[in-house]
């Protein structure tokens, strides 16, 4: 097929300037393409308007939705392929307490002697919270036991629901990251291997508004012993 036929099919060349043979060839191909595409055009499309309007009407003011490129895609892929890949999450209370203790010591050391002492660490599900953040924030250790994972990132309302902080595997299968978070209620999830959105099994579950769930943590304002 010559380029003149393609230019004609692209609308750049009028049919009147084509030869009879070119015109027949172009017309035959056009009909064939339309015929091949007709099943797609004939396939009834579902009406998603009600679901969309309901979702956008009920949106929370601060929280961004999980993106098509991440959360939704992962859920769809997993559901469609019927290949759920379990992520084993185990709680190790002793490890959590140890991590909190290390975190508190580290925080106190980095803030120097003039810094207020940290309050009592709080353990919420699989996530250990520690006090004494900077500029009104609270340092929170997010933890996920995910043996076999190649990477784990954290996404939440505090990251705009983009996979952000990278968790580090300091001991086999145990992934952690320390993130400064403002006090308040925060929803979050872990992104395992870049595709799987995994909830913290020991945190409160909340509806994400799109048929899934998020994990929720309450970050409390730390007690400041120098103010008492």
């Amino acid at each position: 097929m010559n380029l003149r036929i393609h230019r004609h099919l692209d609308g750049e060349l009028r049919g009147s300037v084509l030869s009879d043979a070119e015109r027949r060839e172009a017309e035959a191909l056009r009909k064939a393409m339309n015929a091949a595409l007709s099943p797609l055009r004939d396939e009834p499309a579902p009406d998603v308007s009600e679901a969309v309007v309901a979702a956008v009407s009920a949106r929370a003011p601060r929280k961004e939705p999980p993106t098509v490129a991440s959360h939704g895609r992962a859920r769809r892929s997993a559901a469609w392929l019927w290949t759920p890949r379990s992520v084993t999450v185990r709680v190790r209370p002793a490890w959590g307490m140890a991590a909190a203790a290390v975190l508190l010591l580290t925080t106190l050391w980095t803030r120097g002697p003039e810094a207020p002492p940290a309050g009592t660490p709080i353990q919420a599900g699989g996530t250990v919270m520690a006090t004494a953040g900077v500029e009104g924030t609270v340092l929170v250790v997010f933890r996920l036991d995910a043996p076999g994972a190649r990477s784990v990132r954290l996404a939440g309302d505090f990251t705009g629901w983009e996979p952000g902080p990278v968790l580090t595997q300091r001991t086999p299968g145990v992934w952690t990251v320390l993130v400064p978070v403002e006090p308040g209620l925060h929803d979050y999830a872990f992104v395992v291997d870049g595709t799987r959105w995994v909830q913290d099994p020991f945190a409160e579950r909340v509806d994400d508004g799109f048929g899934g769930t998020n994990s929720r943590v309450a970050v409390l304002v730390p007690a400041r012993t120098d103010e008492t």
Binding site: P46, A51, A55, E64, T67, V68, G72, W80, F210
Partner: peptide, 16 residues
């Protein structure tokens, strides 16, 4: 089914 979800999510993301 995923195509339907993708369309729905695209419109929601567009709205946001």
């Amino acid at each position: 089914e995923p195509a339907q979800d993708l369309v729905q999510d695209a419109f929601i993301k567009a709205y946001r």
